[in-house]
Amino acid sequence: MSKFGELIDLNVPVLLGFYAEWNDQSTAMHAVLGDVASSLGDKGKVIKIDVDKNKELSQALRIKGLPTLMIYKKGEMVWRQSGEQDADTLVGILKEYV
């Protein structure tokens, strides 16, 4: 989990997308997260996290529904939501924290 601390302790917003390969809604978000990453460039970071490969982290963050999206800035969670989102909405939210 110390690696997780390094991932989220940045001065730019970090969008975490929690997914599972067996969950169609969360895998459908891959393309959206790719679009968000392209739009942000170096003003933010997008990280996809497979809940099945990161069970300890998923439990610690109480991931229940998929997809679950979180935004961290400087190590603090500033936004969280479960369910699908479109790229424009996510980019708009992330820009509030740039």
Rank of each mutant, 00 (worst) to 15 (best):
S2K: 12
S2E: 15
F4S: 03
F4P: 03
F4Y: 12
F4V: 01
E6A: 11
E6N: 10
L7M: 13
L7H: 00
I8P: 02
I8R: 04
I8L: 07
D9E: 14
N11M: 02
V12C: 02
V14Q: 01
L15C: 08
N23S: 13
Q25F: 08
S26Y: 08
T27M: 10
T27E: 14
T27S: 09
M29K: 09
A31F: 12
A31D: 12
L33A: 01
G34H: 09
G34C: 12
D35V: 13
S38M: 15
L40I: 05
L40R: 09
G41L: 06
D42Q: 01
D42I: 03
G44L: 04
V46I: 07
I47S: 01
I47P: 02
I47E: 10
K48L: 14
I49Y: 05
I49W: 05
I49M: 09
V51P: 04
D52C: 01
E56K: 14
S58V: 10
S58H: 09
A60T: 10
I63F: 02
K64R: 15
L66T: 02
T68M: 02
Y72W: 02
Y72V: 01
K73F: 04
K74W: 08
K74T: 11
E76Q: 14
M77L: 11
M77E: 14
M77I: 08
V78I: 14
W79D: 04
S82T: 14
G83L: 06
D88R: 06
D88A: 08
L90N: 07
I93N: 04
L94A: 13
K95I: 00
E96F: 00
E96W: 00
Y97C: 07
V98P: 00
V98K: 13
